[in-house]
Design a protein around this nucleic acid. Structure first.
Lengths: 159, 159
DNA sequence: CCTTATTCGTCAAGATACTTGACTATATAA
DNA sequence: TTATATAGTCAAGTATCTTGACGAATAAGG
């Protein structure tokens, strides 16, 4: 059997949070699996979310830190790993000798292309499942929730 | 400053996966923060997802493993931690001397109540943001995505 | 009853993704 | 110049997960 969900269990989670979590891990798993199948065996969730913020012409490490919302050390470690894999490289910023610009290597650029392709495919698959309006509605609902949380939770880091 | 998202950046993630991830972490952060504010300082994401599967009258460890979709050792470690916090306790199953029933302690029951209250509050907040139909549509869309992934990714454990 | 396999749980060790604290080098402000 | 803030690194520790190996109880087959 696939799972024994059909049994009349005493309780099974059913709130938005749980569904959000399920859908999120489904997407992540699908993405990482597809990347790995495409030969990018070094891909993981955390690395994907970092890579998603590195622009084509490189991005300052400080900007990555700001965008990702995790500690600078965590970001650094992620970059270290990706640098070790030959996906990213660090360049120095001519205008600020402290700063480092993180950019894709050749390998990184091809991974980026692959990643974009896969994201489009997944988006397409979701569009087929939900219909174009359904997908659009989903995305706008998700955006609304995320931004409301930002407003509401206050006490962000750097506050 | 709160964040500098408004700048016209070269690229900023915008696919479903990213929004899913944002909304998901918003929910998780809100839940955990509310629990901690309510005095349950031991709460974490992973613990919350385990506790969501422990029924009021106790649940066999093997069932938790099956439901959570992670390794039995991971589940065990989570239970160990919660047992150490005095939230859960393990009882032996009279009908199977190998098995262990995981149940809430007194402290666990009060946390459970609090958690349910918070989940309802969050759901309510989301309902206000999206409207009743919007929330319902969101939930059903999420469910569709999660179950389609299950079909597609196959190779579940327990095969 | 007596093997043999299966299932339930534990112990141990290791990987990944984070955290905080301490510190260097550079830049900026007073 | 001196103080302070910012960019990044190094080191150590925590949380969550993994695989492998194992003991103990149950189930299946003779």
């Amino acid at each position: 059997m696939v799972k024994s969900l059909d049994k009349k269990d005493e309780d099974w989670p059913d709130h938005v949070g749980w569904r959000l979590s399920q859908a999120n891990s489904a997407w992540r798993a699908a993405f990482v699996e597809a990347m790995r199948a495409a030969g990018h065996g070094w891909m993981t969730d955390a690395r994907a979310s970092l890579l998603g913020h590195v622009g084509r012409r490189g991005t300052p490490q400080s900007v990555l830190i700001e965008r990702m919302g995790i500690s600078k050390q965590a970001v650094q470690q992620l970059i270290d790993g990706l640098e070790g894999e030959g996906v990213l490289r660090r360049m120095s910023d001519p205008r600020d000798k402290r700063a480092r610009i993180v950019a894709h290597t050749q390998k990184g650029r091809s991974a980026l292309q692959e990643a974009n392709r896969i994201k489009l495919e997944l988006e397409e698959r979701y569009r087929n499942l939900l219909g174009p309006e359904g997908l659009a509605a989903l995305k706008s609902a998700l955006a609304a929730l995320a931004s409301s949380a930002n407003d509401d939770i206050r006490g962000d880091r750097e506050g």
